[in-house]
């Protein structure tokens, strides 16, 4: 921990959510956005928000383009949450190459909307949060730059719920993962969604009983019409209960 962390991490901050892990956990290093604005990691990026965090670098041409394209589509699925209570942060893995100006061009080229920030900073601060958020306890992977082009961390500071996903999976899946850290929906809403899910299951090609019977006949398996009766089974179970319970 450097001197800045020591001071910023231990200052009591009444404005942060009660369940938050706070700057002592997340660290509070200063990064610079693609708009060339300085921001503190916890205070400005994490506190009270849902954050969707990944690592990238502008010159990455193998895996990153698909990952970034996926995030571009995710913006639409986040709707007006983006920039209000949900934010997307793409940190560079190569701070030497990626200046704010270069990141600004990259953001523009990928159609980033307000609420999606591309950030650079000191190697120390970037590595610190990379290890804090994406550590696998495997040196080969933890120090690999490429591996981090696909990892996505989703954090809600208000209830300290985290989850993760990998890129470039469909944005639909990532949007669903974001919903897991959101506050649980009201019961009435969940009951309605459950009914909708049931309707979808019923509509799907569920294999009907007659079709199953036909399939069994095709295999030459005997058809079972009567319920299986097991007069002795219950008696055996009784003795088990008496001995074990």
């Amino acid at each position: 921990m450097n001197r800045r962390d020591f001071f910023t991490c231990h200052v009591a901050d009444k404005s942060r959510p009660a369940a938050s892990l706070g700057p002592g956990y997340y660290s509070n290093g200063v990064f610079r956005t693609h708009e060339n604005k300085p921001v503190r990691f916890y205070d400005d990026l994490i506190k009270g928000k849902i954050s969707i965090i990944n690592f990238m670098y502008a010159s990455c041409d193998k895996y990153c383009p698909r990952s970034i394209a996926c995030l571009t589509k995710l913006q639409d699925l986040l709707g007006d949450h983006l920039g209000r209570d949900m934010f997307m942060y793409s940190f560079t893995l190569k701070p030497d190459e990626d200046t704010p100006a270069k990141l600004a061009a990259y953001a523009k080229g990928n159609g980033a909307r307000p609420g999606w920030l591309f950030l650079t900073g000191s190697e120390y601060d970037l590595t610190s949060i990379r290890f804090k958020l994406f550590r696998l306890d495997d040196p080969l992977l933890d120090f690999s730059v490429d591996i981090h082009a696909s990892m996505l961390r989703i954090i809600n500071d208000n209830n300290s719920r985290w989850t993760s996903w990998v890129l470039p999976d469909p944005p639909r899946l990532i949007r669903e993962a974001v919903s897991w850290v959101e506050p649980t929906k009201p019961f009435a809403v969940r009951v309605r969604e459950n009914a909708e899910l049931q309707a979808a299951i019923d509509k799907e090609s569920v294999i009907s009983a007659p079709k199953r019977a036909e399939f069994k006949r095709a295999h030459g398996w005997p058809e079972i019409t009567a319920k299986y009766e097991n007069p002795d089974g219950m008696k055996k179970l009784q003795t088990l209960f008496h001995a074990g319970a």
Binding site: K62, I147, A149, M151
Partner: peptide, 10 residues
């Protein structure tokens, strides 16, 4: 082999 997947567990 030259194409990094990025995906850890798959």
């Amino acid at each position: 082999p030259a194409n990094p997947t990025g995906k850890v567990f798959n």
